[in-house]
Design a protein around this nucleic acid. Structure first.
Lengths: 248, 248
DNA sequence: CCAAAAGTGTTACTGCTACACCCATGA
DNA sequence: TCATGGGTGTAGCAGTAACACTTTTGG
């Protein structure tokens, strides 16, 4: 994809003055509805032009004295109450013309979007109810048309989610304190698809890594043998940090 | 590392007006001196305050109408003539206070840095000689103190370089058209360290992947059996794109 | 013929895949 | 006692690490 810059473009750029920016932060917030095995994304309905009434990623413009990461957390807190989450920076989209508001050349302010990727615990993620219906979870499989280039950002975030899941323990940031191995497996299945791995192999792989502590407590769901509840043991995990792990 | 935002911080932020930004692009440009097996980074000596006379990553401020990526290419072209390279976005550093020029609260313009990571072919990377001595390759092992937070950005880029090397064919963007397997091995060794893999295992792994074409041409370096020259066959590689590969 | 560099092969081991099978419970 | 979900075991295969070995050159 990268290409050498056109010499003409370079020279043209140098004749231009510096661009003035407003910086936005847009969040791709995922959650897994473990009861129904659905992967969800949080979207908000726009109440202003441009793209009035389109769904979009929750975002905000960065304020004086505020760090990018803090802005990302602020968006989250404005939309949902949540106690457990994983968050990291995704990518920065900043081509001129990505936001139609730039087109009025008069002011010439550009909008740059630093996107963040978050995964939140569904159980305690309550949508803040100030503007009912304007903030909602959407199934990833059937998304509406999104404002701006948010479809692209979302795709990028989904890719990152799947990668992270394979080599990072982010699932445990978001599962309940205690969970069965089947819960864990379903979680992975919902995100990666049905055939990502055989259940029994998944079990042994994860258990062999040695950071899942069996509490011996059992839970039953209808018929069938009761399952052990496990806890993620972050101390046992610590030495494995940075090491390349495979959860797939 | 991520933490829930302090509620007080959120409320404070909302009282603030939007921040005005200038956006800078900083490049972490790596190259491998294959003759001496050294990993190099391109640095420029600052000619202005702040950090006058400190070495820093080559960077620029984004101009009107210019995309981030184009700005990244522009920096490259201003500092070195190069024909083969790999380039991708790295990370965006944007906390308030990362640039001392912000501290005069009067103007309140913030400087945000979108960093790019590049790997260039050493052989044809000629430093543009407008300001002799102010642009230079440095050994990664003995870096000077860098301006701003550039040390951090560089570390981040080095991490990315090592990761990319393990699962992407970026080495071939930067090696000569024709190379011996030993050239390739040395290239990897220079970046990943001596013990990343046994030479003969590295050979067979790479050859088994099937995208290295043996030209049958031989080249000798002093005593010893002459080595075959290979060529990266991008057509043969195409189907492997996106697939998870292991080059280690 | 020897040393140096390139290239091939072998062996032991690890880890994964795809199952078959056993266990504990509710109805 | 059967269906259901949880959990264990194993045989075959593939991939890897470590190292011994062969080949081709220069001196």
């Amino acid at each position: 994809m990268p290409q050498l810059a056109d010499q003409a473009l370079v020279e043209n750029a140098l004749k231009q003055p510096l661009a003035d920016f407003k910086v936005g932060v847009d969040n791709v917030i995922f959650s897994v509805d473990t009861a129904r095995n659905r992967l969800l994304v949080l979207l908000v309905k726009r109440r202003d032009e441009p793209f009035l009434n389109y769904w979009s990623l929750p975002g905000t413009l960065v304020r004086k004295g505020e760090s990018l990461e803090n802005a990302a957390y602020r968006i989250l807190e404005e939309k949902i109450r949540v106690h457990n989450l994983y968050l990291e920076q995704l990518y920065t989209f900043g081509g001129p013309g990505r936001d139609p508001r730039e087109s009025e050349q008069s002011y010439g302010v550009r909008y740059l979007s630093v996107s963040y990727f978050a995964l939140v615990r569904f159980a305690d993620a309550d949508i803040v109810n100030s503007q009912s219906g304007h903030v909602a979870w959407h199934f990833l499989e059937k998304l509406p048309n999104l404002a701006f280039d948010h479809q692209q950002i979302l795709q990028y975030g989904y890719q990152r989610l799947r990668n992270k899941l394979e080599y990072s323990p982010i699932a445990f940031d978001v599962l309940p304190e205690l969970f069965t191995l089947n819960n864990l497996y379903q979680f992975y299945t919902t995100i990666l698809g049905e055939n990502f791995s055989d259940y029994s192999n998944f079990r042994s792989r994860l258990l062999k890594l040695g950071f899942l502590f069996d509490t011996q407590e059992k839970v039953s769901r209808g018929a069938g043998r009761p399952a052990s509840l496990y806890r993620f043991d972050s101390e046992a995990f610590a030495p494995l940090k940075d090491k390349p792990l495979v959860f797939i």
